[in-house]
Nucleic acid binder design. Structure first.
Ligand SMILES: [Mn+2]
Ligand SMILES: [Mn+2]
Ligand SMILES: [Zn+2]
Ligand SMILES: [Zn+2]
Lengths: 121, 121
DNA sequence: GCTATAATGCAAATCATTCGCATTTAGTAT
DNA sequence: ATACTAAATGCGAATGATTTGCATTATAGC
């Protein structure tokens, strides 16, 4: 995969972002890059394992830099995403299914974040 | 929610299916029901908690009857879905995040199913 | 610098899902 | 049973995210 100016810019935007970003959000930060190019590059990065694609619902997919493996908790009220880690190895052993070789574990929590907890109660 | 003939048919199809089905798969079984109606009814069932909507990728959403809560393992080779249960309560305690109230836990495993395991090796 | 190949821009195409609106139906009250 | 009202349906058109075809341009190696 060639190292182009566009690709560096896209990675930079993701690197400096606390949250996962959609293709259109990235495009908003980099309007000079064609949206189709952003999609193509994101796909390349996902294949290369540089970034992770999150399908958190029927809306746009979100992309984030793949630092260490982690999971997500999403607030039902504000859609805020919290990143957290667990002992993946331990869980993989715990979830062992006969005949199924686990290569990836994904835990998604839904609920209410700190900000909206009190209001909901 | 009214109990219409169409709604009963849709639930019947889901009931008799081992696997989760997409809206178009249901439409293939019930061609006399308009696809838009199928989508509308599936959405109503999800809201009512009768069925569960699975977003397992960028493709079509899948729907399944909500018997007991369970999770899914998807084969990377053939997209076969295996359903399994874990001790949800135990995990919810284990995953406790400060300030986040968990209402739903979702575990998704990716890997290789029994059928494709040998070939891949 | 020259070349082969991959990357990009642009517009058009896809595809799942949703919407608007006229028509029909279920459930309920007469 | 009849009438009435809100919900459900069919149909086609609209949406919105993502992809694709193709001509043009940039990258990496020689
Ligand atoms: Mn994350
Ligand atoms: Mn299932
Ligand atoms: Zn929140
Ligand atoms: Zn398989």
């Amino acid at each position: 995969m060639r190292i182009t100016k566009h690709r560096q810019e896209i990675l930079d935007v993701l690197d400096h972002s606390e949250e996962a970003l959609s293709a259109s959000a990235i495009h908003a930060s980099l309007p000079h890059i064609n949206l189709a190019t952003i999609y193509r590059n994101l796909e390349s990065f996902v294949e290369a394992g540089t970034i992770t694609k999150l399908n958190l619902g029927g809306e746009e997919a979100q992309y984030e830099i793949q630092d260490e493996p982690h999971h997500h908790a999403i607030c039902n009220e504000c859609n805020k995403v919290i990143h957290f880690t667990v002992d993946d190895e331990k869980l993989v052993k715990e979830f062992a299914l006969p005949g199924f070789l686990i290569t990836n574990l994904e835990v998604t929590l839904r609920g209410t974040c700190a900000t909206h907890k009190t209001k909901t109660k």
